[in-house]
Design a protein around this nucleic acid. Structure first.
Lengths: 195, 195
DNA sequence: CCTACCGATCGGTAGG
DNA sequence: CCTACCGATCGGTAGG
């Protein structure tokens, strides 16, 4: 049998990560075996170890890549003028990331618990930092009377969870063009459901 | 060694389910071994099989118990007069359930994928039914001009996800007395963040 | 990228 | 509720 090495493009690792994201999302990190991942890529399990040190390295790559993109997004949003524009930018970034890389985002949000130390603590730290920055945005908005004077903590959580609604699209997806979705979410969060 | 049978109260199974919920939530269903669960209950792994047929029976018991309580909650809410009161009742029920049984609710929301057929299909069916009923509530509210004329599907998802925000409390919990929390969430969803 | 293979762990059963 | 134990699977390594 002739050796058919994969395209050395360096896209090889990306292809593996992409497939891993799909499987980790749909079947869970622990439930996905390296043999299963390899089969989906039409190679043998041990071959995976030429690209990644071990199974956890796959999870780390996915989680920290997404964490970095979220952090970059909030950094970008913070440059806007006024709490409303900041929140708007924040939500847009969230939605776009979830539409671009739905599987990886889901894994970063739900399978990160499977990380081991020291990666686990580092990830939690980044996550907390992210939440604190959003909290500050809300608090600042309340102070400037641009937002209602509600419980800032609860607001932060509400926004973070609302923004995750696309994950529920698992069940009943394809609901509307993105723009429509973005607009609806923004409307609900900013103006409420009540007429 | 004398045999010390557990209290036959029938609460034995509940104690097992409670501990299983905690472990399934914190470490994941697949990552939790029967030996680990047994150790937490100070018994040997094979003893668990006197109370439950197998590992999946534990997951089934947790998921369907919670699904039943949510369905009962929406049934109760639908009796209210007016879309606002219905949504209010719905959200209150959600929050209370999450505060009463946070671990089991989390497992039902995130670990149900590990169910096998035919339980898996049954669970998904119940879930879809639940979402459809909420969607109808929203649509009815829009028709009666009690809600803004936004995308009902997206609204449904937004509510379902907002209501799950307590799960994020994992990270930074103990934020406020329940009543405060309920009120804030209701305010945001109904009236929006903007002043 | 492959074949061959190992140590560890796990769900579950037998039998009392 | 326990001890003893099995078959299967899994992550990962050796060596090419």
């Amino acid at each position: 049998m002739p050796r058919i090495p994969a395209p050395q493009n360096g896209t090889r690792q990306q292809a593996i990560l992409k497939q891993a994201s799909v499987l980790f999302r749909n079947r869970g990190y622990k439930a996905t075996s390296m043999r299963e991942l390899a089969a989906a890529l039409h190679i043998q399990a041990p071959s995976l170890y030429n690209h990644f040190k071990n199974k956890e390295a796959l999870l780390q790559a996915i989680c920290f890549s997404i964490a970095g993109k979220f952090t970059e997004g909030i950094r970008h949003a913070e440059k806007e003028n006024g709490s409303l524009l900041i929140i708007e930018s924040f939500i847009q970034n969230h939605i776009r990331l979830m539409l671009q890389e739905p599987d990886a985002v889901y894994v970063a949000n739900h399978e990160w618990k499977n990380l081991k130390e020291p990666a686990l603590s580092l990830f939690i730290k980044q996550r907390r930092n992210y939440e604190k920055r959003l909290l500050k945005i809300i608090e600042s908005g309340i102070q400037k009377k641009e937002f209602k004077n509600t419980h800032a903590q609860a607001c932060t959580l509400a926004i973070l969870s609302s923004v995750r609604m696309l994950e529920l699209g698992q069940v009943q997806n394809k609901l509307a063009p993105k723009k429509d979705l973005e607009q609806t979410l923004l409307t609900i969060l900013l103006h409420g459901l009540k007429n």
